[in-house]
Each structure stands twice: as structure tokens, then as C-alpha cells.
């Protein structure tokens, strides 16, 4: 059996699934919506608040700049897009297990390694790309509205890629959790707790730079170059993603798909 051809088959299957079950669409909306809505919301906020807070000097309360618009977008990416990504991908393994759609392929010798790798590759690449696009849209749109006063287009692309990489790491946690539990909501709960509680560990200065969530703090600087801290976080994130994927395969190869 040609391993590469088989891997291509799993990739093709994931692409078909992503398109027909509208997963790609949900993921794209979950990221791009905030890229478009955040700059315009920030622009309209003084108008909205003007009627509510008559006489108040809003310029003292609100920072109306490209940086503020990008900060708002990156906040939403971590808080809301994580939720949307995890919820839309919740069945990535669990659904295949609970719906027993893997029974026939496994009885015919389907490679678990190939299947997990294909899922991570297809959705990982899509999430990475959509985050780069989202950050470029947010950068360009906020620049048009408030003026290009912060970072650069290249820095925005790098920042988007870093966010994308973080979400690929989140996906690997979800896959690992799904390999242990059959119920999707349990896998989602474990993943969200892990992701949302990770910033707490950042309070310990010694471990901070090794945490994947530190990538986001570094990405928010919109620097044209990769800082030393970001490189360390990047290596740790990629390393953990690989470890989680290997563990998922190891666990799933011992699961009875019936």
C-alpha cells in the first residue's frame, strides 16, 4: 500500500468534510467577523456613547487608533475565536468515534496516524491561513479608518501566523482530549479549561516564556522581527503540538472503534 497516496486520501476526505459540513465557513466567519467588525465598532463607539454620556470628554476614555483597533481584535481572537474554533471542531475525533464512522475504514486497515495527521494538516493549514488573512484585513481596515500608525503589513502577517499557530496548538489539545473521551462536550470542556487557564500560569515568570499563550503576548507587539522570547514560545508550541498529536495517535491506536 502506498503510504503517501493513502495520506492524500485522508487529506482529500478532510477537505470534502470541511467544505460539506461547513466547518471551513464557520472557522472563517469566527475569525474574519472580528477583523471586520472591531475597527468599525471602535470608530462608531464615540457616536454611540455620545448620546449616553453627554458632556463627557470621550477622548479621555477611549483610545481611537489603529493600535486600539488591533488590540480589540486580538482580544476577541483569544476569547471568542478560540471558543468558536473549539466548538466548530468539537467532533473532529469524538464524532467519528460516537457515530462509528471509523469502524469500516479501520476494519479495512485505515492508518490512525495518517487520519490524525490529515485532520491536523487540513484544519491546521486552514486556521493558519485564515488567521493571516484576518490579521491583514484587521490591519488594513483599521489603518484606513484610523491611519497607519502602528506596526506594518509584514508584522501583521507574522502576527496572524503566530495566532494561527496557537490555534493549531489548541486543535491538538482538542484531538488529544477527544482520543480519551467519546463525548464531544467533555473534550471541549477540557480544551477550553486548558486554554483559558493557561494565562494564569504566565504569572510565574520562570515558565512564562515556555507557554504557548506567551506567543500571543509577543504577537500583540506587531514587531517586524521575532524576539528571543517569541522564538522560545514558538519552539515550545510546535513541540507540544507534535507531542499531543503523537499521544493522540498512540491512544487512538488502542481504542476499539465499534
Amino acid at each position: 500500500m502506498n503510504t503517501f497516496n493513502s495520506f492524500k486520501t485522508y487529506v482529500k476526505k478532510e477537505i470534502i468534510e470541511g467544505m460539506r459540513t461547513k466547518k471551513f465557513l464557520v472557522l472563517a466567519i469566527g475569525v474574519l467577523f472580528f477583523a471586520i467588525s472591531d475597527p468599525i465598532m471602535l470608530k462608531l463607539l464615540p457616536e454611540i456613547l455620545k448620546n449616553e454620556m453627554q458632556g463627557a470628554d470621550l477622548s479621555m476614555l477611549l483610545e481611537l487608533s489603529q493600535k486600539a483597533a488591533l488590540d480589540s481584535y486580538t482580544n476577541n481572537l483569544f476569547q471568542l475565536s478560540t471558543l468558536i474554533i473549539v466548538l466548530s471542531m468539537m467532533g473532529i475525533i469524538s464524532k467519528e468515534r460516537s457515530d462509528k464512522t471509523l469502524t469500516i475504514p479501520v476494519s479495512m486497515g485505515c492508518s490512525i496516524n495518517g487520519m490524525v495527521s490529515a485532520k491536523l494538516l487540513v484544519y491546521g493549514v486552514f486556521i493558519l491561513l485564515i488567521n493571516v488573512v484576518g490579521m491583514l484585513v484587521a490591519y488594513y481596515y483599521s489603518g484606513i479608518i484610523f491611519g497607519f500608525t502602528y506596526g506594518s503589513l509584514f508584522a501583521a502577517a507574522v502576527s496572524g501566523a503566530v495566532y494561527g499557530l496557537f490555534f493549531v496548538f489548541v486543535l491538538s489539545i482538542l484531538i488529544l482530549a477527544s482520543s480519551f473521551v467519546k463525548k464531544s462536550f467533555l473534550a471541549v470542556t477540557v480544551t477550553l479549561l486548558f486554554v483559558y487557564l493557561m494565562p494564569l500560569a504566565g504569572n510565574f515568570e520562570r515558565v512564562k516564556r515556555y507557554l504557548p499563550v506567551n506567543l500571543l503576548s509577543e504577537a500583540n507587539y506587531f514587531a517586524d522581527f521575532l524576539s528571543k522570547n517569541m522564538v522560545v514560545s514558538l519552539i515550545c508550541t510546535i513541540g507540544l503540538t507534535v507531542i499531543f498529536s503523537v499521544l493522540s495517535v498512540f491512544k487512538l491506536e488502542r481504542v476499539e472503534f465499534v
Binding site: 500500500m1 493513502s6 486520501t9 479495512m108 486497515g109 485505515c110
Partner: peptide
């Protein structure tokens, strides 16, 4: 086709 392709 998926099954056939998976089997190589």
C-alpha cells in the same frame, strides 16, 4: 473511491 484509494 475513498476506500479504494485508502487501500492503494
Amino acid at each position: 473511491e475513498f476506500i479504494g484509494s485508502m487501500k492503494g
